[in-house]
Design a protein around this nucleic acid. Sequence first.
DNA 1: AATCTTAATCGTAATATTGCAATATAACTT
DNA 2: AAGTTATATTGCAATATTACGATTAAGATT
Lengths: 109, 109
Amino acid sequence: MGATKTAHFPARQNQMAILFKALGHPARIAIMEYLIKVNTCICGDIVNELPLAQPTISQHLRELKNAGLITGNVEGNSICYCVDEKMIARVLAYFENVSGKIMKKNNCC
Amino acid sequence: MGATKTAHFPARQNQMAILFKALGHPARIAIMEYLIKVNTCICGDIVNELPLAQPTISQHLRELKNAGLITGNVEGNSICYCVDEKMIARVLAYFENVSGKIMKKNNCC
DNA sequence: AATCTTAATCGTAATATTGCAATATAACTT
DNA sequence: AAGTTATATTGCAATATTACGATTAAGATT
């Protein structure tokens, strides 16, 4: 006991959870927002931008990349990271769907 | 070391991270989706719906409530949980904003 | 080639999360 | 009041996450 019972849930729910989990840390929110702000891809600038050590940033970048939220392209010496629009669109679509279902009626307690 | 350096990030980013973190578990996604599906508020039915023990569900419900994603109202013997539309709307707005900023131009690597 | 720069990886300590059995609490039922 | 039902809390084991110093890997620069 202690590990998430991933196998007991449908793949779709697991996938959404992976996306949200990746966004569930202020450093990773900050990285995403910075990437969106500067648009053109950045790498080690993030280390200068955030109050965390380089290995920690690298670790957070890997998690965002594993979740599919960003991509990293080797560019000579450095690595160029950028937001993956498709994933953002996917999360947006999820909430639009959810939001629509709630709005229908919410005669709750 | 080991704890998130919350104090080093702006409150807004911390708040968004709390919301996403709460959604970052398949059981909590399942609970949210179930609540949305049945609309009218439910309590212990969730225990029958999901493959987790009652204390575990109770714990997940508390986390969703702490994040502000659901509300729980005492109704006689049982407790009636429901989705908080305001929070869903807030997350939706976040992604609409983010999505709009990305769409502008994404001439990335 | 020696050095510098950039970023990943390794190892590890501190802390958080997940899950559940056992127990507690609170309201309802008889 | 005693029993039932519904949910929360406690305590704990297993596992995951967070953060970083030290090191490594790989391309760039001199």
